[in-house]
Structures are given as C-alpha cells and as structure tokens.
Design a binder for these strands. Structure first.
Lengths: 230, 230
DNA sequence: TAAGTTGTAATTGTCGACAATTATCGCTTG
DNA sequence: CAAGCGATAATTGTCGACAATTACAACTTA
C-alpha cells in the first residue's frame, strides 16, 4: 500500500519516523486535540532523545498540527468549528486556482490517467454502496491529482504538505461521513471534463462550487447538531 | 518603527533572534539565493551552538526560505522566474479570497482605519513622487490590512507567515520597483470601497485583478529583459 | 583515458547534561 | 478567607561530544 501523501518522500532519519507516527496519532485522535505535549515523557515513550523528538515536533508544527510557545511548550491544535470552516475557505480559493492551473498545465497523459482513475472509482463497489471509501481515499486521490496537475510547486506545498493533514484530522475527529458520495462523484466528473477541455475558468468555478458544497454541508450538520443537543 | 510583520511576536529565545537575522540576510541577498548553508560555519559565525542554529533553520524552512534534505544539508531557496510567477498565482487566489472574507468580516472600525491609512498614503510625498515607498512598505501595509481583516487564521498564517517573506525576497533580489505606484493606489482605493460596501464578490474580483496586473507587469518585464539581453 | 572503487575527511543526525525560564505549591499578610 | 509573594520542582532552551551518513579524492583497473 503506497503512501497517500504525494509530497512525502521516504523517511530516513528517526526523527522522520517519529514525525510520521505522531502525525497519525494526532490525526486519529490518539493524542487528543488540545492536549499539552510533554517532551520528556514522549521522548521516554518513544525511546529517543529530546533533541530528536523536538526535530519531529518542528515538522508537526510545519503542518500546523501542533503549536509552540517559547518557554512554555507544545499543544496539539484544537479542532474548532471555526477552524474547520476557515480551512474550507482556504481550500475553496487554493484548490479552485489549482484546478484552473491544472486545466492549463496538465499533460494529456495526466488527464488520461485521471480519467481512468475516475472510471475505476465509478465501478468501485464502495461507491455503489455509497459508503466510506469514496469519501475518504478516493476523494483525496482525486483532489491530489488536480493539485499536482497544477504544476505549481507553491500550491502543491501548501495544499499537500500542510492543509492535507488538517483536513484528515478534522475528518477523523468530527467523524464526517456525509451522504455526498454519489453527488461528489458527479461533480468530480464534471471537473475532469472541464480540465480535459482546457477550460480553466469553468474548471475553477466547478471546483469552488464543489468545495463550497462540502462546506455548506458541514455548516448544516453543525447547525443541526447544535439545535438538537441543546 | 514597529515591526512590519503582524504575525511576528516579540522574539525571546536566541534561536528567534538568529532566525530574524538570517531571514533578513536571505531576503536581502546577503546569503545568496541557492547557496549551501554550512551548519558548523554559520554556528561559529553567530557564536552559537549547532542545536540553536538548527532551530533557527527549522523556522526558515517553515517560511520556505531554505530547503533541507536529510543527511545532505540546507540550501537557500533559488529565485526563479517560475517560482515568482507561482507565488503570484497563489497570491491571486488567497488574497482574492481574503478580500472577499474581509468584506464580510471586517469590523466598521477596521474599515475606518484602513480608509484613513489610504488617505495618508494619498498625501504622502513618496506617492506623489511616484517612487519607492508606496511600492514597498505602503503596498505591504495595505495588503496586510486586508488579510488580517479576513479574520481567517489559516489565511493569515499562510499569507503573512510564509508567502510574505518570499514576496519580499523576490522584490529585493529581482529589484522590482515598477511604475505601477499610482495605478496600484487607485486599485487599492476601489478595493476599499468594495469592502466598505460589504460587496464580497466584487472585492474578490478587484483584488484578483490587482494582483494579476502585477503578475502581468512582471511577465512583460521578464520577456523584455530576455529579448534585450539575448 | 575514463569509469569504478575504496579510504579519508567533512557534514549531518542523535545523544545526554546543564542553564534559563516557567509553573506549582505552600506560606505570609491584609 | 482571599490575594499576593516566595521557594521549589518541573519544563524548555542551549550546549558540546559522539555516531552515522555523505562527499571528495586518490588509486586501481579495464
């Protein structure tokens, strides 16, 4: 099973390995959102020195999974509703632009590959059942292709290197398995069509609407949850 | 003279100070673009240990001013034309969205403040002379206000914490003092009007055109330079 | 001569200890 | 009894040394 992060090169140093372990632990909530990180304790737990742990913490901070204050320490980022919505706003802007650039810059081969990926998704049992797979891995795969297709290193860094982890974290912790699977698949198809036609303007609009729809879906859910829990 | 980076809190640790010094040195080209960074050498030069220097390097990496490879070392990022244009594409997307959000989220007080800042720019001697100030500090001030006005922490982090430094680096190293000062000022004024009218859609469009105009201006310059130098 | 190899030198990664700062708990005092 | 203060404990920041990896150079060999 290949790594699902296209920007992540094979880890060599132990700090890299610790970073990956902690990343998963934070994303999946094993290290709770908002909790303080004790350097001595974690170092002992992982059987490494504090220097190595701090190196790993620096990388976690780079993808905004933890926050550090001088002489105070590190905390896992807190998952808030506003934080989630803020991320979707950024995604709408950046992935919309990435989609426009993809329409301009993707090679014909890349487009063919993406089409075949989508075709495979269409026949996937999971999609037909309308359940988890497509919301999770399949959805991410599609968005990755578009982002990488932009051929804009800055876009790729920000989206795949930073926001990606946060998105996954929120998905895990807020338990988001929306009923948008089939709708999302249709939207993906339209987007690919626009890219294939090299229509950057339309591609951007469609991607923005696609992400905005997700955001609104979340907003509705939150509102519903609030009113029912009170 | 206050710090011009709104996200930058007062530095306390020595690693912070080294970070700031190196940041300036890189941005202004004293540490050349693309050059390799020797940890032992720099540590000796700054009279600090390698650990502290590495802490500073980690922060430089966070704002994409240097790149690190495991077991190989750090290099200052290379200034390329494509890199510059990539940044402008990201800015167009993100600052456009920031502007839309600013129109929705800025307080009335913030808007008043921004208007008065612009009024002050209008009477500034530098602007009337059509020279450097407005392209540099004044322009940055305006864009900062808009970004902060979005009240979106993720947007603020990415734009002020990361892209900002790169933008300044390119401005220094490519020596960009374009003749767009008065035009830019007019565009800024229109943007503020749209924000004041709470017209998010228009605000975004205007900001995107404003940044796209800068990008095209650069593209023209580059093309000109290429054809003249060959 | 050019390519491959091996051994040495230099650089990076990791470690444990010390210094500086912060948090905590108990005490004093109004 | 509450609020402020002070000493102690714990945590973070910094340091220098060692281990592991990489880069370089001289040498061998086809």
């Amino acid at each position: 099973m290949a790594s699902n992060n296209p920007t992540q090169q094979e880890a060599i140093t132990t700090a890299d390995k610790i970073f990956q372990k902690m990343q998963i632990a934070i994303v999946e909530g094993d290290i709770p959102s908002g909790s303080k990180i004790s350097e001595p304790e974690l170092a002992k737990q992982f059987q490494i020195s504090r220097s190595t742990l701090r190196e790993a913490l620096n990388r976690l901070e780079k993808c905004h999974l933890i926050e550090r204050k001088a002489n105070v320490g590190s905390r896992v980022i807190e998952c808030t509703v506003k934080g989630l919505l803020d991320i979707y706003v950024v995604r709408e802007a950046l992935e919309g632009m990435a989609c426009r650039q993809a329409a301009l810059n993707m090679t014909d081969e890349e487009i063919v590959d993406m089409k075949s990926m989508l075709a495979q998704h269409a026949t996937s049992k999971d999609l037909q059942d309308g359940v988890s797979y497509y919301q999770e891995q399949g959805d991410l795969d599609f968005h990755y292709r578009v982002i990488l297709g932009s051929h804009n290193q800055e876009l790729i860094n920000i989206l795949c290197g930073q926001l990606y982890h946060l998105v996954r974290m929120y998905r895990c912790q807020f338990g988001m398995n929306s009923p948008r699977a089939s709708k999302a698949f249709t939207e993906h198809s339209r987007i690919v069509e626009a890219i294939a036609e090299r229509d950057g303007e339309l591609a951007e609009i469609l991607m923005r609407r696609h992400i905005a729809a997700s955001r609104k879906n979340i907003e509705n859910k939150i509102a519903l949850k609030d009113s029912s829990s009170v």
